[in-house]
């Protein structure tokens, strides 16, 4: 496997604040990695470092390039959507296509046209005349028409309704993604991307608190629903998090055998959102 992104001891400080604190990870080709963290956890800063928009300490290599020093070369192979508001409001759709076609050697106008023909976006409309959902559709169509190796999405569906959000991710999967392409995505709406991801990373206070392929999560993490004495017994196995639900204790365990817990109650693999709360709260309490 080839590492597309390789980060070793990456840190970024703003004054006394360590926005990213000694983070190390590898992302391989053909993976869809979710970077999940609360507000102010350092997600966007880390993405900016990956995109060469900010410098950082440590060693960071993206597609074999130093992102900050070789941003232009990097941008020929990376696309990103920062959030729905970034397309300039004064530009026309046709002008936007003209511009990208002129500056991006990997952009296919015919593919963009084909993708846009499936939408209701008029070619002569200005961005400010389009709805938020349409702007995102347009941005994604342009990016999908670029033959790039890495797609970085930072809260791409912020402010969109559920229909557009579902459609967005289905388009990402159907039109963009293949085994040659890689996606790094951050979002608050974890549930919506859970089934898309091949890998997940949790970040909190600038530090990675989890970095795992999705298919290894069931081996490492188990959620147990227990009551009464069983809950007491389970607590001795050091759950990383515990919460109450309808009189039952819901406990999340890391590295405790599923068979061992089965005897104490109902077990299942925790949902990403629950695991996130367990890891982040567990890390802080």
């Amino acid at each position: 496997m080839t590492s597309l992104i390789s980060a070793r001891n990456v840190s970024k400080t703003f004054g006394s604040l360590r926005a990213v604190d000694n983070v190390s990870f590898e992302i391989e080709k053909g993976r869809i990695t979710g970077l999940i963290g609360p507000n102010g956890a350092g997600k966007t800063t880390l993405l900016k470092a990956v995109l060469g928009l900010t410098d950082c300490q440590g060693s960071l290599s993206v597609l074999g390039l130093d992102p900050f020093k070789q941003r232009k070369e990097l941008m020929q192979n990376i696309c990103f959507i920062a959030d729905v508001a970034v397309l300039p409001r004064w530009i026309r759709v046709s002008q936007l296509l003209d511009f990208v076609e002129s500056v991006h050697p990997r952009f296919s106008r015919s593919k963009a046209r084909e993708l846009l023909s499936k939408t209701k976006i008029p070619g002569q409309a200005k961005i400010k005349e389009l709805s938020k959902g349409m702007v995102t559709q347009l941005h994604l169509s342009i990016i999908t028409a670029i033959d790039a190796k890495l797609l970085v999405l930072d809260e791409p569906t912020l402010g969109l309704d559920i229909i557009f959000r579902k459609e967005f991710y289905s388009n990402v999967l159907n039109d963009y993604f293949d085994q040659e392409r890689t996606i790094l995505i951050t979002t608050h709406q974890v549930e919506e991307i859970e089934n898309l991801l091949t890998d997940v990373m949790f970040i909190n206070d600038g530090r990675l608190v989890l970095n795992s392929p999705m298919d290894q999560l069931p081996e490492r993490y188990v959620e147990l629903q227990a009551t009464g004495d069983n809950a007491e017994l389970a607590r001795k196995l050091n759950p990383i998090h515990e919460r109450d639900m309808f009189g039952k204790k819901i406990m999340t365990f890391e590295g405790v055998g599923r068979d061992r817990l089965k005897a104490l109650g109902e077990v299942r693999t925790p949902a990403i959102a629950d695991l996130f709360v367990a890891k982040v709260k567990g890390a802080t309490t």
């Binding site: 990376i78 990103f80 397309l87 500056v103």
Partner: peptide, 9 residues
């Protein structure tokens, strides 16, 4: 929109 302009090569 600087974020979009800077996403181009």
């Amino acid at each position: 929109s600087i974020l979009f302009w800077r996403s181009m090569p």
